[in-house]
Write a protein that binds this DNA or RNA. Structure first.
Lengths: 365, 365
DNA sequence: AGAAAACATTTGATCGATCAAATAAAGTCG
DNA sequence: CGACTTTATTTGATCGATCAAATGTTTTCT
């Protein structure tokens, strides 16, 4: 009994009943002030912690959200998910929610996991990332009326209007538009874009941001604009190749915008003149190399995801909230400007800052 | 009742009692074959899933391990933890364990989280990463007799002999030793090392691997060896600066080994002659750039962590197993050799492979 | 003051599974 | 064949919390 006090122990110590202790924890406002403080003192002195599983069994609510941990294909763009995961965990914690991980080898397998976790009352809802058009997972979750929010718009046109489908996304158009603007204001006229092949929901969105900003300014005739654009698969070496194609075919280039930091890093490798390159995702790589990059503001995304998931009931998750609150959030990314400060491209150059000696292991692990 | 069948429903359907159903799930061997199949059929047809919380309440076991998600400082080396996390989740899943995330702002805060998660019966044990010498967290966990395993040796000499402290680590000495050997066999004699300032448990360990291999071969006199070594904080720009210092002071260099991929990437930037550079961690960056790198085999680490944590009782976690099994695992990393295949450093060169057009979004999110 | 309403606290039942002990069935052996 | 093991299955109690409803207490109002 000394090991793990229960509500009953606390009740005994405070001279009240179990339920009053429970009330102090869950709806303090209905307990008279003096009893409340007495109970709180007892809780404190006994070091009581509620037993999560017992509570869940009774309330049929786990206060846990499940998220699939994707196999990391590209560590560069993967780091966005990584920091999103971190932001999500941190903010979930503040709301008394927990984050449970799982993995899956295929969409079908993932659905099986959904079932297992949901039926077992392990989680109350899910956060999905990397959704694709006509995603079978969202269909299934909707059918089963299981709460979920996706990070990423459902690009399939029909899905977009489904009001049950909650989503949070980053406005890629806005990101590229403002990145283009920033270069224009710095004096650049011929701004190139290295993107992904169409159709790609996010890719096309970002491309349009660049395209629209270029048209608005009118520095380059619309017909000419195609020469300033190159599409390729994502990746560092692909970025290098794309940059080389641009240099061969596009004439003068004042700045280059890329659909990802991977591409941007690649582009930098074939960029001896140090034409300004802007990436997307603001990964640690961009910071290390000194690339400007569009930051997805994962904190805001995480906050939006949790808000939607918990609905207006703080800390609770409901599969079918009848609120009329907006069903989605479109987060504005922000441009982080850098000027290659960290990268002495010229081998003969002097280092920009002398190496600091850390007090502890740089990489303790 | 149609919504969520319970053991009782299954029992009714199969014409047996609750407990028999429970036995079929937990110790099938004690149930007669024909009853077992009958119960299994009922489970299948009703779509029964055990209620995790109810089971946990009764068994006082959550089958969940907690792991702190570090704030990602450097996305490059952070990706090791990321893939470790993935491996851990995947293998935990196979053993019927779940992985619960949490965050903390300081060691003290983390200890508070330990307490909360453990007292609330949310988790059975913890996996710690980024441990430091004389870590207060491990002390506290040991005192409270809470199960945990660290990824990383306790470098403090006194801690090393504590048999209660279970750990899994990667043999950095072996990693650097074999990387050095590989370069020597390829004909290199003057092999430089870019490392971290001492004292650093992991850093010194890796350095020794290089140092010992160099001495064994004897291509470079011991006195001369210091000229081939540079220490610096971790980071890309630090790597670039370190490489420049090496080039200025070390004379001829046939190959460069680095204590991390971040340093290696930095070194590559100040490496127009394409001296072979080897990194550490085999991050996606290394793959993208075409750097050789020492792979930490996170899969083996994850397996070791889970084995130690679950002890010999498959799927169970015990704070004080009385087995005499080894208390730790030292995993041998393996060298992944690459030859800059992906990186056309010469801006005028042709791309090494033409960009493939992906069928789906390269980065769907 | 007395009745009604508002507030505060307690009691019994319950969530779904497993444990421990009791019972029933099958197998062994002199 | 009946007493004795061994094996298979069932019953009652329990894990720790919350819900729903009952009881007790205080305040409000006529």
């Amino acid at each position: 009994m000394a090991e793990f006090p229960t509500v009953t122990d606390v009740a005994l110590a405070a001279g009240v009943s179990r339920q009053t202790v429970s009330n102090v924890m869950n709806s303090p406002e209905i307990v008279r002030l003096d009893t409340r403080t007495r109970v709180e003192a007892a809780i404190e002195s006994l070091g009581y912690r509620p037993h999560a599983s017992a509570r869940r069994l009774r309330t049929r609510r786990s206060s846990t959200i499940g998220i699939r941990l994707d196999p990391m294909i590209d560590g560069i763009s993967g780091s966005v998910l990584d920091s999103f995961l971190h932001a999500l965990t941190e903010q979930a914690d503040a709301k008394g929610l927990r984050v449970l991980l799982f993995t899956a080898t295929s969409p079908e397998d993932e659905i099986a996991q959904f079932r297992r976790l949901n039926d077992g009352a392990d989680v109350d809802g899910f956060v999905l990332t990397s959704t694709s058009a006509g995603d079978p997972r969202t269909k299934w979750l909707l059918k089963k009326k299981i709460a979920f929010v996706t990070f990423g718009r459902p690009w399939g046109s029909d899905d977009l209007n489904q009001p049950e489908h909650l989503w949070v996304d980053v406005d890629g158009w806005h990101g590229l538009h403002s990145a283009t603007r920033a270069q224009q204001e710095a004096g650049a006229k011929r701004i190139a874009f290295i993107g992904w092949p169409s159709p790609s929901g996010t890719g096309d969105d970002r491309r349009r941001g660049w395209h629209d900003a270029m048209l608005e300014r009118g520095d380059v005739p619309e017909a000419e604009l195609a020469r300033l654009e190159v599409v390729t698969a994502d990746g560092v070496s692909e970025g290098t190749a794309a940059m080389q194609r641009l240099r061969a075919a596009a004439g003068r280039i004042d700045a280059v915008l890329c659909a990802s930091d991977s591409l941007a890093l690649g582009a930098m490798i074939a960029n001896p003149e140090r034409i300004p390159v802007t990436g997307y995702d603001n990964t640690p790589i961009a910071a290390a190399i000194g690339l400007s990059s569009v930051d997805q503001s994962v904190d805001e995304v995480a906050a939006g995801v949790l808000e939607l998931l918990t609905g207006e009931f703080e800390g609770r998750i409901d599969a079918a909230p009848e609120s009329t609150a907006p069903r989605h959030r479109l987060v504005k990314p922000r441009l982080v400007e850098r000027r290659f400060a960290a990268i002495p491209m010229d081998p003969a150059g002097t280092p920009t800052r002398s190496p600091a000696v850390p007090a502890v292991d740089p990489v303790p692990n």
